[in-house]
């Protein structure tokens, strides 16, 4: 049976891991390759690298990070952040990424989803959606790291990206992100159960129970977290044994 996935997400800036990672025995906590290797040993199921470098003229740095990681770590690697066109996607895939994640550009230029999934296969095109709940209970999509509201309801957009050929959705609740109060289970479950492509829940994890809820109530296919893993509040093996006890199928 297909196991549920646990995915740590690393923010990379100018080729370095930011927001600190507290694996005590790493000689260089800023080195993405070392951090990735440590997550591989811990049996994380996939990794996501999010390039938050402000100036994307520095693309070759990220290329190099991806290349070195792919030479040392043998699990699926998704790269996102600043990917604007087909040649950026090709660059990342050729450097060793298995999937790319498209965010702002997917709304500005939805045909890129179609073009990219046709050219490289749906399986490597992840669409990242940042969503926010409004007072009337409706959810809307945001771009530019949450600065711009787009006049599109979350579920409608999710259905559109599926139809355009996206292979997976990375769904981040901006209301929950950083709160440590858990995922937005309502929108996660609505989108996941309305689509036939996998959905990754993101934003808000503070405890083991939140990971469990992401699967049990959010109906997510995978759960993503950053700081709880990086700062050692939750370890991957600990998360897996907790989920297993609760009856969620995870990989040993």
């Amino acid at each position: 049976m297909l196991a549920k996935r646990i995915i740590p997400c690393l923010d990379i800036q100018n080729g370095r891991v930011v927001k600190g990672v507290t694996f005590v025995d790493l000689c260089d906590v800023g080195d993405p390759v070392q951090v990735a290797q440590r997550y591989e040993e811990a049996k994380a199921d996939e990794l996501i690298f999010l390039d938050i470098t402000a100036s994307h003229e520095k693309r070759e740095i990220m290329r190099d990070v991806v290349k070195k990681t792919a030479e040392a770590v043998f699990m699926p690697l998704t790269v996102g952040g600043g990917i604007r066109n087909i040649s950026h996607i090709e660059d990342m895939l050729k450097s060793g990424a298995d999937k790319v994640s498209l965010n702002t550009v997917s709304l500005e230029n939805p045909s890129l989803i179609q073009e990219a999934s046709k050219r490289f296969g749906s399986q490597c095109i992840v669409v990242a959606m940042d969503v926010k709940r409004e007072p009337d209970g409706k959810y809307f999509v945001y771009t530019h790291g949450g600065r711009h509201r787009v006049n599109k309801e979350a579920l409608q957009w999710a259905k559109e990206v599926e139809a355009l050929g996206a292979g997976e959705i990375l769904l981040t609740s901006m209301d929950c992100d950083g709160t440590k109060n858990g995922y937005d289970l309502e929108i996660t479950s609505l989108i996941s159960s309305s689509l036939s492509i996998p959905v990754i829940a993101s934003g808000g994890v503070g405890s083991l129970e939140h990971l469990y809820e992401g699967f049990a109530k959010g109906k997510a296919d995978a759960v993503l977290a950053a700081s709880v893993f990086h700062f050692g509040k939750i370890s991957i093996p600990e998360a897996k044994s907790y989920l297993k006890e609760k009856g969620v199928l995870v990989r040993n």
Binding site: L2, A3, R5, S193, S196, N252
Partner: peptide, 29 residues
């Protein structure tokens, strides 16, 4: 309600002993 693509870690039920599967865990993912 299973998703397509089948994406992620799943286990192998090895039905025939073969050198390619030597020294693996019981139901390898």
């Amino acid at each position: 309600g299973l998703k397509i693509p089948h994406m992620g870690w799943n286990s192998l039920d090895i039905s025939k002993k073969d050198p390619i599967f030597e020294n693996l865990p019981e139901t390898p993912y």
